[in-house]
Structure formats: structure tokens, C-alpha cells
Lab assay of single mutants.
Amino acid sequence: EPLWIRPDAPSRCTWQLGRPASESPHHHTAPAKSPKILPDILKKIGDTPMVRINKIGKKFGLKCELLAKCEFFNAGGSVKDRISLRMIEDAERDGTLKPGDTIIEPTSGNTGIGLALAAAVRGYRCIIVMPEKMSSEKVDVLRALGAEIVRTPTNARFDSPESHVGVAWRLKNEIPNSHILDQYRNASNPLAHYDTTADEILQQCDGKLDMLVASVGTGGTITGIARKLKEKCPGCRIIGVDPEGSILAEPEELNQTEQTTYEVEGIGYDFIPTVLDRTVVDKWFKSNDEEAFTFARMLIAQEGLLCGGSAGSTVAVAVKAAQELQEGQRCVVILPDSVRNYMTKFLSDRWMLQKGFLKEEDLTEKKPWWWHLRVQELGLSAPLTVLPTITCGHTIEILREKGFDQAPVVDEAGVILGMVTLGNMLSSLLAGKVQPSDQVGKVIYKQFKQIRLTDTLGRLSHILEMDHFALVVHEQIQYHSTGKSSQRQMVFGVVTAIDLLNFVAAQERDQK
């Protein structure tokens, strides 16, 4: 057995438009009618409502009807409940999964919650491996369901041993009777949507819809739904939504950006999952974080739909894509998950301010006199920076000697690579993860907040409520011999709460 199987392995699926269902090699399930009293909570997966979006479509000038398939009504709160249950049931049916076995899954959280929910009911041990950027709410729900959680670096490539995929496979090879159901490759993922989600949409719309818009992560949702719609409703256009920084969209030119990270969760990847059939997507749109969270908040405030950030991405694209539809036509959007997962993220004004998705003037509360002053007023001194090749031991000596707790790590040209902190280095040394002679590049981390000289002290204040420091950066445009230009970030300084307090105190003292 291989040590790991690539999540982007070539698909062996034989589905073709027009091929009889009787030739399918898979076990198919028909939607079942729910009894009045459910035998367990797993029976509350599927049969989610279709809700008309009344205000947002009109606000953006849509002539067509805009409908939302509300997947956050599933038992675990997301569309991923469907595939989690289906993968477990299919693994039980073919004898792969037996009582007492362990389920391991690399996930952005929602599939993990679905699997942990099913594992709690069915009696399996469950280990979820997820990147650090995923919300604390997801972690809390997983723990409450009895799952064990392993976190991995957000910026690790999918084929790196440190990625959530790599760590999951390492655990599988170490733990007896453990299984990775593997949402990236498992046919049960798109089949769950082909058999149930798509049929529900067709039934709820009486077979009449002209466009379907869905955000894409593993691709199982859009693949399964689109294949069924292509068979039953061939005139329906399928629109895929991919965040900026991901590479799922086609044509490839759409993916060209210097951005590699994004805040919206559960969609987009740096590889093409095996289950994603991009041939059934008629057109791709890219979405960005700001519009995703703005539209998610709009869905909550104006439509009462308590959905997550990827739902915002989907609707932001839908109001663009559906401009081509006329009166009497219908566009369906998939709202994948609930706001429950993001209470401390985009639902929080403070978080939105820190990330730059909300401006101070958007909030009406009274601010102190210094709130709208610029960061450049602080008069920061030149920063202490270190090269990635310097040793951890030497870096600790320098920081202690100069009285700093942290320093930016830059390359020879001064471009920011990340940050090192005294606390992080000492804990890594004590844990045996690094040696004093190791290069400081081994303990770089990139989960820090950046701020510009033109940003306000109010925004800085919000950042420092949650973080010990902020890195002050400025952009530099560099022209190359080819005539092309590129933008790079340079370090201007490091600012802490002490710097802000000293500035405010000094100004008030001078005024007296």
C-alpha cells in the first residue's frame, strides 16, 4: 500500500453525458421521505430548503428570480454533511469501515464536522487534520463531537509532509485500522450531490432553472449537481466560483495573481482535486475576500440567511453572472454553511477592521482624538531585521541585547519573508524542534498583521487588541530589464502597544 495517494490523481470516472444510468458502476440512493420521529440526527441530513432572495437581486438590477439552496440546514450545519454520511455509508457497505475503526480526514473543517457527527452516532474514533487558518468555532464544535484535532501550517503546499493532507496520511500509516475516506478522491463525494442535492433542486424548481452558481473546494458539490442538471435540464448554465489565490478556475489566465492566501474558508485549493470535473462548468468567476464577507453580511442583514463567507462569494458572483438572465428565468445559488463557524471572524466588526474589510468610518461609535491620525505620526525608528541564514542562537542574543521581542526576517534585497519572535524561538528550542545552530528560517511564521503608514491609529489599535505587534510595510514598484514591473513589500518598522501608548501619553502631556 502506498504511503500516500495524491489528492489530485487523474480521475478514473467514466461518467458521460447521455450515458444510461443503468451502466453506472456505483451504488445510487434515492431521496427517502422522513418519518415524523427521526431514529437519529443523521436522518436530518439532506432535504434542505430552497429560499427566495428578495432584496439583493433587485438591489443589483437582476431581472431573474434568485433562489438560495440553504445547505446550513443540514444536521452539522453545512453541505459537507451529505458527503460525510455518504462516504461512511459506502465504506461500511463495501466492508472497508468496521466497528471500532478510526476515521482520519484532512479538511478545512466542515467535512470534519460532518464526519465527527456521523462518527459520534456510529461509534468510530475520528481524527481531523486541518490548517491553522480555520476558525476556532470549527475546532470547538469538533472537540465537542469527540474528534481529535491536529493543526497544520496554512501556507504548507498540499504535497508537503507538513500539509493537512501529508499529516493525515502519516497518521494513517501509524494508526492500525485507520482510514482516510479522502473527500478529494472519493466518488461518494460527487455521488452524494448527484443522487440527492441535484434531485432536490430539480424537484423544488419543478425542473425549471436557467443558471446554477456554486463555490468550489473539493469540487464534489458542483460536479455532482452539474452532471445531473446537464442530464435533466441541459439549458442550465453552470457557474463556478473560485477565490483569488486558488488555481481551480479555467482558463488558467484567471488564476494569475501574486496573491497566495485568502481568508474565506472551505473553497479554493492549490491543486485540482480528483473529484472535480471542470468540463461540466460553463464559466468560472474569481471572487475576493472583501466581496465575500460584504455579501455574507448582506445576506444575514437583508435576507435573514445566517450563512458563512463562501455563501457571500457565491452570491457576489451570482449578481454578476445572472445579469444575462431575463424576467421569468431563474438562478439558484448554493449557500454551503452557517455563520456559526465564523462568529469571531467576519461577523465581528473588530475582525473586519483588522483585516481591512471594514473602515473605521463605517462604525458610528465615538472615537478618541488620536483615532484618525496616521501611523506615520508615530515617528517610528528604523527596524531591526535579520536574514533567514542567521542562526536561532545568534538571533536570540541580538533580540535580548537590543531589547526586542520580535524581528522581521528579510532577504538580501529587503523583501519581507516573515517574522521571528523570542517566545516562538525559545519554545521551539525547548520542544526540540530546532537547535541553536539551525537557521532562523526554520522558525519563520507568517501569521502576523501588516499595516501601512497611511493607515489610521484606530486601525492599529484594533490590531493591537488581539496581537502583540504589527509590521509596518510599504510597497515598492521595481522595474526589470524586460520592461515588466513587480510590486514588493518592504519593512518600514515594527509597532507595539507600548509605542502607541507612549505616543498618546506624550501628545497629551505636551497639550497640557
Rank of each mutant, 00 (worst) to 15 (best):
490 M>C: 10
482 T>D: 06
428 S>P: 13
490 M>W: 09
260 T>Y: 12
290 E>S: 14
307 C>G: 08
443 V>C: 13
308 G>W: 03
372 H>S: 09
499 D>C: 08
287 S>C: 12
334 I>L: 07
272 I>P: 05
275 V>R: 01
315 V>L: 14
365 E>W: 14
255 N>A: 06
406 Q>M: 01
483 G>R: 13
285 F>I: 12
443 V>A: 15
275 V>H: 01
471 L>V: 13
464 L>Q: 11
438 D>W: 15
311 A>Y: 10
341 N>Y: 04
374 R>L: 15
383 P>Q: 08
446 K>R: 13
373 L>A: 15
287 S>H: 09
498 I>S: 15
411 D>C: 12
372 H>C: 13
422 L>I: 14
463 I>Y: 09
269 Y>L: 01
331 C>A: 14
483 G>F: 11
341 N>L: 01
505 A>Y: 13
487 Q>M: 12
295 F>A: 01
395 T>R: 06
383 P>S: 13
381 S>Y: 10
438 D>G: 13
393 G>I: 11
303 E>S: 08
452 R>V: 09
357 F>M: 01
454 T>Q: 09
408 P>E: 01
243 P>A: 01
371 W>L: 09
365 E>T: 14
407 A>Q: 08
383 P>Y: 07
475 E>S: 01
430 L>Q: 05
270 D>H: 07
501 L>V: 10
346 F>L: 11
407 A>N: 01
453 L>D: 01
434 V>L: 09
266 G>F: 05
491 V>R: 01
257 T>W: 13
238 I>Y: 04
435 Q>W: 09
306 L>E: 06
265 E>V: 01
416 I>H: 09
433 K>M: 10
444 I>V: 11
394 H>V: 15
247 I>V: 13
507 Q>L: 09
445 Y>T: 15
383 P>R: 06
503 F>S: 06
393 G>E: 15
395 T>C: 01
426 L>Q: 07
292 A>F: 01
504 V>W: 15
286 K>C: 03
356 G>A: 06
301 A>G: 13
393 G>T: 15
429 L>T: 01
457 L>G: 01
380 L>A: 10
444 I>E: 08
406 Q>I: 08
262 Y>V: 05
490 M>N: 15
338 S>E: 11
350 R>D: 09
294 T>A: 15
304 G>S: 05
421 T>C: 05
397 E>A: 12
480 H>V: 09
351 W>G: 04
456 T>V: 12
367 K>H: 01
283 K>V: 10
479 Y>P: 05
447 Q>D: 11
335 L>G: 01
336 P>K: 01
238 I>R: 01
427 S>V: 07
459 R>E: 01
510 D>S: 09
485 S>A: 13
366 K>Y: 15
427 S>C: 09
430 L>W: 08
332 V>W: 01
437 S>M: 14
301 A>W: 07
256 Q>S: 11
462 H>D: 11
324 E>S: 08
480 H>K: 08
418 G>L: 01
433 K>R: 10
327 E>K: 10
452 R>Y: 13
363 L>I: 08
265 E>T: 04
498 I>Y: 11
338 S>Q: 09
310 S>G: 01
409 V>T: 14
423 G>Y: 01
382 A>F: 14
390 I>C: 09
326 Q>S: 15
426 L>W: 06
440 V>S: 13
456 T>C: 09
420 V>D: 05
288 N>D: 15
344 T>E: 06
491 V>D: 01
280 V>T: 12
387 L>I: 13
350 R>V: 07
262 Y>G: 06
367 K>A: 12
450 Q>P: 01
493 G>R: 04
482 T>C: 09
239 I>C: 01
301 A>P: 01
283 K>H: 01
428 S>I: 14
